[in-house]
């Protein structure tokens, strides 16, 4: 099968500042369907820049990018928007949900755009609800973002990323604003989705988060310096059980202490 993402010798040079910044310096990469990739690297190594290009939000200065067989170089602004709408799902570090808008309406958002789908409002609602179910938040559909925890907000964002059945789900530091327990929760959702065959590319600078993925790419100064499969990956469900057990134990000791 052809790779869903195929980039060749991709470069990005930011010319906006006083000195041009060569943020990505020749990355070539193929991503197959069903992969679960962590893009790692130190801060400033070009992870976000690469992700923005993968997400068709930004154009490369040089190099080619084919998404699902389509060369994005040939597309204009609106065609890129349609491509993002249909083939990509986005999860951002800061969740980026619309404030004062219910979880359900946030998830509906991608279905309100795009040229080719013209669903009825009922259908839109039903699909959004289904995606909330996938991330385990169906019962919170009418909650506003400020009524949800960080992990729940990120799960709503994931549901929004899924709702148009994308070819690739892109996540830039999805656990960056979360504590370790909710990070595990979110990684669990990703693992479940990946098990169902969804291709996921995420950025992280945390090694233990990268362990939840199947393939790790390490970026340094805009080039891929390592590309390896994860040997002994962490399984979120097991990790969650461990955390819960630890919590229970902590509670017990706390109780014992207070009784003593």
């Amino acid at each position: 099968m052809s790779p869903v993402v195929k980039i060749q010798d991709l470069h990005k040079i930011y010319e906006s500042g006083e000195v041009p910044v060569h943020a990505v310096r020749g990355v070539s990469l193929e991503i197959q369907r069903g992969e679960f990739i962590a893009l790692m690297g130190a801060s400033g190594s070009g992870k976000s820049t690469l992700m923005n290009m993968l997400g068709c939000l930004d154009r490369p200065t040089r190099g080619t990018y084919e998404l699902d067989g389509i060369n994005i170089d040939d597309l204009d602004r609106n065609e890129l928007a349609d491509l993002r709408n249909q083939k990509l799902g986005f999860v951002f570090q800061g969740f980026n949900l619309l404030a004062r808008t219910t979880a359900l309406e946030n998830v509906e958002l991608p279905m309100l755009y795009g040229r080719h789908r013209k669903f009825s409002m009922d259908k839109i609602r039903e699909r959004a609800m289904h995606c909330l179910e996938i991330v385990g938040l169906a019962n919170r559909f009418d909650h506003f973002p400020n009524q949800l925890s960080g992990g729940q907000q990120q799960r709503v964002a994931i549901a929004r990323g899924l709702v148009n059945e994308p070819q690739v789900l892109l996540a830039d530091e999805p656990t960056g604003n979360l504590d370790s327990k909710t990070s595990v929760e979110v990684m669990g959702v990703f693992q479940k989705l990946n098990d169902q065959g969804i291709t996921i590319v995420m950025v992280t600078h945390e090694l233990d988060i990268a362990k939840y993925c199947r393939r790790n790419l390490i970026l340094r100064d805009g080039v891929v310096v390592r590309d390896e499969l994860v040997a002994d990956g962490t399984i979120a469900e097991e990790e969650m059980q461990r955390i819960k057990a630890a919590e229970a134990a902590a509670k017990l000791t706390l109780q014992a202490k207070s009784e003593a």
Partner: peptide
């Protein structure tokens, strides 16, 4: 601005 960014990122056209 952020809201507009989100909308544009997930597929809104400028015209939308």
């Amino acid at each position: 601005t952020r809201e507009i960014g989100i909308r544009l990122a997930i597929g809104a056209h400028g015209r939308d």
